[in-house]
């Protein structure tokens, strides 16, 4: 059991920040790792990235985007509530070295792990440039935090309501065509990471991506998280989640992520029926 000691809505209506008490976990965890949580006896196990690690306080932070049943259920938890199962830190930490200029690219909930990762890259003496993408200005998250650990933050919005109009890859393209970078790291939805990897390929820049296949145990036992990297089968939970973006077989990943869309929708619809009030009040 892990107690929630802070909860905030960080972006209307569906992105939440949680600070959770986990002394032992926070002492061990490194940027780039994740946890698996289960909310109740009938709950699913879902993976969430570490959005911050604070060993002094004995806490970790999570950023959760409500997209389906479990994440919506989590969004209902309050300060003082307990998460039934919290397991981690899982996966391999980000390899952090001084390489020169590092470009961090984040979209969606993918921004979450970038904050501790950026902090370490900065502390290791790198120049850190962050590109954050969202559909419109009000959907940009974690800008303040990323500003703290970056030399520059570039915002892109699809509708041009903030920063550069377009996708993160447009900004990345612009950046790489004028400045050299030693490392690009992308975290976010699969399609975004795929596009980033395709953009950087032409420049020959090393590109690390943090993959998010479906997972169950997170300990190498089920093989459900397997991904094809360089033609080889890898288990994202123990070999990753970070891999060389130029080697990843994206089509297989994107397809496997959608394996349960039908069931997920069913579960969510059922749940929504029982929590109709939430969806009326939303706006």
């Amino acid at each position: 059991m892990a107690k929630i000691i802070e909860k905030r809505l960080i972006r209307l209506p569906d992105v939440f920040y949680f600070k959770v008490q986990a002394p032992r976990l926070s002492a061990r965890a490194r940027p780039g790792q994740f946890v698996v949580i289960r909310l109740h006896e009938k709950g699913e196990r879902i993976p969430l990235s570490l959005a911050d690690i604070n060993p002094e306080e004995g806490t970790i932070s999570l950023i959760v985007m409500a997209v389906g049943k479990t994440t919506y259920e989590m969004s209902l938890l309050k300060e003082g509530d307990e998460i039934l199962d919290l397991c981690g830190p899982l996966g391999k930490p980000t390899e952090i070295e001084k390489v020169g200029r590092v470009v961090l690219v984040g979209g969606g909930f993918g921004v979450a792990p970038l904050y501790p990762i950026g902090r370490e890259f900065k502390a290791a003496g790198n120049e850190v440039i962050t590109i954050l993408g969202a559909r419109s200005a009000d959907l940009v998250i974690y800008e303040r935090e990323m500003n703290l650990v970056s030399d520059r933050v570039i915002i892109t919005t699809n509708d041009g309501s903030r920063g550069v109009k377009g996708l993160v890859t447009d900004a990345l393209q612009g950046l790489l065509s004028s400045e050299a970078a030693e490392l690009v790291m992308a975290v976010g939805p699969g399609v975004m990471m795929k596009a980033v990897a395709e953009t950087t390929r032409a420049y020959g820049v090393k590109t690390v991506v943090s993959l998010n296949p479906l997972m169950i145990d997170g300990t190498g036992m089920c093989g459900g998280c397997r991904v094809l990297v360089g033609g080889k089968t890898k288990f994202a939970c123990i070999d990753g989640p970070e891999f060389d973006g130029h080697q990843v077989n994206w089509d297989s990943l994107l397809c496997r992520q959608r394996m349960y869309v039908h069931e997920e929708r069913l579960a969510f619809e059922e749940w929504k029926k029982r929590h109709a009030h939430m969806f009326v009040q939303e706006d």
């Binding site: 009938k42 699913e44 479990t70 169950i216 394996m259 349960y260 069931e263 997920e264 579960a267």
Partner: peptide
């Protein structure tokens, strides 16, 4: 026991 339990299976 899906959807009483949350984890799906094909």
């Amino acid at each position: 026991n899906f959807p009483e339990y949350d984890t799906p299976i094909k």
